[in-house]
Simulated assay, not measured.
Amino acid sequence: MKYIKQFLIILAFSFTGELLKLILPFPIPASIYGMALLFTALITGVVKYSDVKDAGLFLIEIMPVMFIPAGVGLVTSWVNLKPILIPVSIITVVTIITVMLSTGWISQIIIRRTKK
């Protein structure tokens, strides 16, 4: 029963995110709205961490399974992806390196400022 309650809490925030997506004219995915709402509720104490902990851990454990449909989609779209594979690969590598460097630099700046 505990898991059902926790899943229902998470689903309620996801559903609220879907409603916000319909109402608000911004190009933001509904899942982002839902996660932001749940994060805000956790920070403010409206929802306690223990109220969603076990269901959240379960969802994180099964997350790799959720990538299977995306992988299958890539395999079935190989004909369309083949001509642009090199540019997409270069863009992906450059983006990964850029994100890693900027995250590292920002983290170092924050760590240095908190030590002072």
Rank of each mutant, 00 (worst) to 15 (best):
V88R: 01
T98V: 12
D51K: 03
L74E: 08
K82T: 09
I106L: 14
T40N: 07
K48L: 00
V75K: 13
V52F: 02
V72Y: 12
L37D: 05
W78F: 15
V88S: 09
T40H: 07
S77C: 10
T103R: 04
S77G: 11
F39H: 08
P27H: 03
G34V: 06
L74P: 02
S50M: 01
V93A: 15
G104S: 09
V52R: 01
A36S: 15
V72T: 10
S31E: 13
V79R: 14
I28Q: 04
P29W: 08
D54L: 07
L81R: 06
I68H: 06
I97S: 06
P69Y: 11
A36K: 08
V79E: 15
Y49M: 07
I86H: 08
S77P: 03
Q108E: 14
A41L: 04
G34P: 02
S31P: 02
S31A: 13
F39L: 14
M35I: 15
V47I: 14
D54M: 10
G73S: 14
M66G: 07
I97R: 01
V65R: 01
F39R: 06
Q108L: 15
K82H: 10
M100F: 11
Q108T: 14
D51I: 00
F39A: 15
V65M: 07
I96P: 06
S102L: 11
A55N: 06
I62C: 03
I43S: 03
M66S: 13
D54P: 04
L81V: 07
L38E: 05
G73M: 11
M35P: 03
G34I: 03
Y33Q: 02
A36Y: 03
V72G: 03
G104M: 07
